[in-house]
Each structure stands twice: as C-alpha cells, then as structure tokens.
Design a protein around this nucleic acid. Sequence first.
DNA 1: TATAAAAACGCAAACGATTTCGTGATTTAA
DNA 2: TTAAATCACGAAATCGTTTGCGTTTTTATA
Lengths: 345, 345
Amino acid sequence: MNNSVTLKDIAKALNLSISTISKSLNDSYEISIDTKQKVLEYAQKHHYSPNRLAKGLKEGKSRSIGVVVCSLDNNVIAQMLDGIDTVSSDNSYQIIIMQSKESQKQEAACIELLYSGGVDGILISPACETVDFSYLRSLQEGGLPIVLFDRLSDQIDTHKVGADNFQGAYDATIHLINSGYKHIAHLNTNTTLSIATERLNGYKQALKDSGIEYRPELLRSCDYSDTQKLNSDLEDAILYFMSLPDKPDAIFTATDQISTRCLTLLNKLGYHIPNDIALIGFTNTDLAEALSPALSTVHQPAFEMGQLAAKKLISLIERKNHEPEYETVMLETYIKARASTQSKD
Amino acid sequence: MNNSVTLKDIAKALNLSISTISKSLNDSYEISIDTKQKVLEYAQKHHYSPNRLAKGLKEGKSRSIGVVVCSLDNNVIAQMLDGIDTVSSDNSYQIIIMQSKESQKQEAACIELLYSGGVDGILISPACETVDFSYLRSLQEGGLPIVLFDRLSDQIDTHKVGADNFQGAYDATIHLINSGYKHIAHLNTNTTLSIATERLNGYKQALKDSGIEYRPELLRSCDYSDTQKLNSDLEDAILYFMSLPDKPDAIFTATDQISTRCLTLLNKLGYHIPNDIALIGFTNTDLAEALSPALSTVHQPAFEMGQLAAKKLISLIERKNHEPEYETVMLETYIKARASTQSKD
DNA sequence: TATAAAAACGCAAACGATTTCGTGATTTAA
DNA sequence: TTAAATCACGAAATCGTTTGCGTTTTTATA
C-alpha cells in the first residue's frame, strides 16, 4: 500500500480544512477560485491521488469488475479478456482477473474473494465442473450484477453473451458435406458445457438436414482435465475412428485445444490431411494459415464477446435501465475454409 | 458494490458490540469460546465476508498487486500472467491487470490508477515506447515495491526477472551455424527494448565467435505499432533479403510475433523452408510443431518468469528481507530444433 | 471473606474520503 | 442603515474494519 499524500496532509500544509480540500478537488461551487487554484497546485505538485479504498468504502462502489475464467493461458480467452479490458478501461473500471482452472471449488473461492473485495459486478465464464449456480444466484439476489459470457447456463437469469455455437457447428458440418465429405466424425469435450452441447447439436442438425445418418460411434468425448489426458484421449479417439470398418473421412472438432492438438496428432500418426481425413475445428489461433496443412476453422468473435459482455455488465452496474430486461446475445461465428477441408474431386 | 452483511449487522442481531464480533471472527483470545461459536455460526449462515475496502483502508494494505503489460492478447504474456496469478493466488493476493498497448502515456495512466487504487506493489513489463522511468522511480522512492519482468531496464533499481535473451539468441545463431547456415539474417523490432538489444547482441556475438562477419544489411528492424505495419515491414524485409546479391540462407527472428508472421509470409511468398531459407525464432507457441514446416524455436520460460517475478514482489511487499538486496535474474531459454532449421547436407 | 488476577466484553479512535449542515463574513437589495 | 441573500469555509457524521484500553464480571488465591 502506498503512503501517498492525503487530504489531511494538504489541509495541514495549506492551513485549510479537509472538507475544503475535498471540495476544491471536486470542483465544488462552494469554494472560491483562489482557494481551488492553491489546492490544485499543491495537489499536483505533491502527486496527490485519491485513495480508491477510502473512496470506494464511502461511495459503496469500487469501480472494479471481477472476471472469472477457467484459464489465462488460452488464445480465445486472452482475446475475450482484451475485449473486456478495452471497454472497462474506457469506462474507468479496473478489472480483477481470476482463474478457476476448471475447478468448481476454486471458482467459488474466486467469486467469494471478488465479492468481499467489493467489486461492482462479476463477469464469469463458468468452469466446466460447475453445475451448481446457487451461490452465484444468491449473490445476484443480493444485488450484485453478474454477466455470463462464452460459456452460458440457464441456471441463472441475467445477461448472457456467447457465440452462436449451434450455427457455427452447423456451418462447419455443412461445409464438410459440401466439400464432399459424408462420413464426419465429431470430437468434443466430456463436459455438460453449453458450448459443448450446442456444437454437438449443430453437428447433428446439419447431418439430419443433409440426409446423413448420425452414427454414435463417430462421436467421442475427451477429458479436459489436463493436457496429458486430453492428448491420450484424442489419440485413442483418432485410432478408434481409423480402425472402424466404415471409417470417417473428416473430423469436426469442438474446441480450440482439441482442434490444434488433433491436427498435431494426425500429422504425428502419419495421416495425410485432407486426403486421409479432413479437419475443421473451432479455434481462433492466428496461426491457422501457417499450419500444416492450413487449418479450416470456425472463428469465434472473442474480442467482441468480451466487449459486449463488459458493456452489458457496466450498464447493469450503472442501472441505465431501471428494470433490467435480461437478454442473451449470440454473436455470429464464421467459417474460414482452408486446405484441411479441400474439396474432394 | 455488494450490500452484504457487516459486522454491525451481526452485532445488532446478536446483541453484542462490533468489536466483539470482529475479535470473534479474528479468533482473538479476548473472546469466550461460546461467543465465538455463536458469532461464527451466524456469520456463516448469513454469508458474512469482510469488506476488503474497509480492511484495506484500515490496514494500509489491499492484498492486491497491479500488473502492467503491453497486451493481453499474446501467447507469451498470457503464460507469464498465468505464472503471476498462480503465485499471487497461493499467497492470497489479487491481481489487477492493465494493458499499456505499448503506449507510454497509457502506461503512466495504468500505474497512476493502480497506485491510487492502493495496490501493495506493481509488476511491470514496460511498453516499448517507455524511455522515462522517473515516474516509476518516484513511486518506488515513496515506498511502493516494484518488480520488472520480461522487459528490463537499468533506469530503475529493483528486482528484475527476465529471460537470458543474449544466450537464447546466441544459441539460436550457433544452432543455425552448426546446421550449416552461414549467411544469417536477423529480424528484430525497431525499439530500444532490452529484449531487442540483448537478442541482437547474442546474434552478433555468435557470429563473431564463429568467425563470421556481421553484415549490417542482414539486419532489419520492423515497426511494432500495429499488425498491418508489422506485416508490411516484414514483407519488405524478406523481399529485400532475397534480392541481395549475396542473399541469406537463414533468418533468426527476435519475437513471437515476428517469428510466426515471418513463417507465414515466407510460405505466402513461395519460399521453401528450409531449402530456400531456414528459420528459427523466439516464440512460445505450442503450435510450433504443427506449423508448416515445424518451426525451430527459442523457448522462453514465461510461466516461470511470471512466478518468480510475483514471488520477488511479494517478498518485497512483506519485507522478508529488511534491506532489500535487489537482484536481476535471467532465466534460461532453450532451443527446440525442428524442421525449419534442418541441417544442410 | 477480602483481594488480586484473569477472563470477557464494550468504547472509541483511526484509516481517507465525501457530504450535509451550520456559521461567520461579505455583498446585495430595500 | 438594516435585513436578507450570498459566499466561503469548517465541523462532524459516515462507510466497515481493527485495536488499544477501560470496564465489568467471574474465578482463584491468601
């Protein structure tokens, strides 16, 4: 904690009262121009800056926003955080970022800490473990504004900002089909996350609309608990797929991690993309173009999601609309077709 | 700001004084077990959590750390932040992250905000624009603990944690030379950043030690101001290199951005790596293996840097050593040799 | 039984800022 | 000249905690 100059110090130095200093710095009409000038001058000279803790305590506001994500070390999330920070800074809110590491317990601890830390609101993308939203709900009922982003849940009624995962998955699958791939496998997470089921549903619907039968053996879920497990699950899944009598000619992957690791593994296992098997997946990496082969992707508007979520939260905090009409926004994704899904001829 | 239950509320409800409640919750010896029990029970039932603002104000501490980085949307930085967060959480400090966006002005604003926000210390990786450290120094002299990480400067005397950029660059260059490449170009940033000059020096020293003449025309600096500019500068540089009568057979790139974009551009321009030109660069992307071709890299211990920097700062905050003996730690980098620098035969 | 010691609790100040209200001093209007 | 309005400022409460010290009650000791 800094030991900066306080109102009291200035008051003593200028032989004025604390309230006069405060009012001067807040440009109150009650103070003469002369005095204001003097105070301002002294304050600047001595680098006065108001103590946010005191101010926050007094005003019942801290002008800070808590952000809870599963991990910091993740492309898509970094972009979302960037969006959140941009909007928050513009509105002079500070953001306090915490990681749940996909653990419900740790997530609860984060929220607790943010809450007691006096944040004005919370922006959260729930851990995949999280199934119980009662704690969050109770905080919300206590008046704390909360906005969900990326990973949504209908266990809590509030603003939600996500990507249109259903449509993205649908488009990706259709893209594969239009490119001549009819035996499409799907790799997803073993979670109950909204993004997981939505993407699975998009995949299924696209198959249905194209008159292709959904084959359960072409769907595999991978453990997300750690990188090792994910890798071995993925390898198992790929080997399983390729051992099938009627093996797939394309894979659609549901997340950033799965997409890029799947590509790496396919290469490692000696499969040629897209000749042996085509690949398209959700991911935002700007290296998609440079991969071997260039990877077709479903791109999520991560930065924009962050921005919009932050805007929604701030409007909630500042109660621009007195009776908040909660809404769920699904931002559009788009397909970037590249070599990994080149048309069959 | 949350309107949670306060000590006063509990006191009123239990017909006790505020101080009794406070002492009970802090497990003071002055309070009987019976009372403590009652208070604790009530507190838990009503989800009491101490107001951090009030506590911080009272104690002159906020148990929060300010972190200033140039950008959130960056692989290496995300890893460093992860490291910082891990250590901070373990020591129950919150981190408040702000972006300078490489602007000195915005960086100053961030610091100012963090300072007035009452952070207990600041962790900073300076913007590349930043040449003037006097503001930071004055805060430090005012008693605010500051630790520099990644991008270091000797304009301020404090703990510093970085990567051994000189050695990393030296190793990369030697690796190229040992692989048969003797005409090595270097792409760097147009900044005065420590990481830039150290890497340049490592490159030069390796050439010298190998009896290879340093050719100024094989060094180009690229503008980092925005992605567009960087890309066009890079393309210019590559085309320039390849138009040289005695053109290089390898490129050593100095940063994450430059490395990956350079690879993309070389592919786009139709050059074959490593036949036409080899490539090795600083970057931490876990996609290096999957790139086309697999990219040889100088890997920085980003997570560990974050961890160590946070540890240093916390020890400074908690004054474990009364007279801080400031030190600069350079963590080791290591070379990951891949296809892009395959040996010439 | 008287007295000292220990135990259990309350009072009030303090952290730094904001804000309401009160009070002299000066200016304006009648 | 006097009453009223305006101006410029200060005193004090407040936000939620912590903590030193004073006060009361209980227990132990002589």
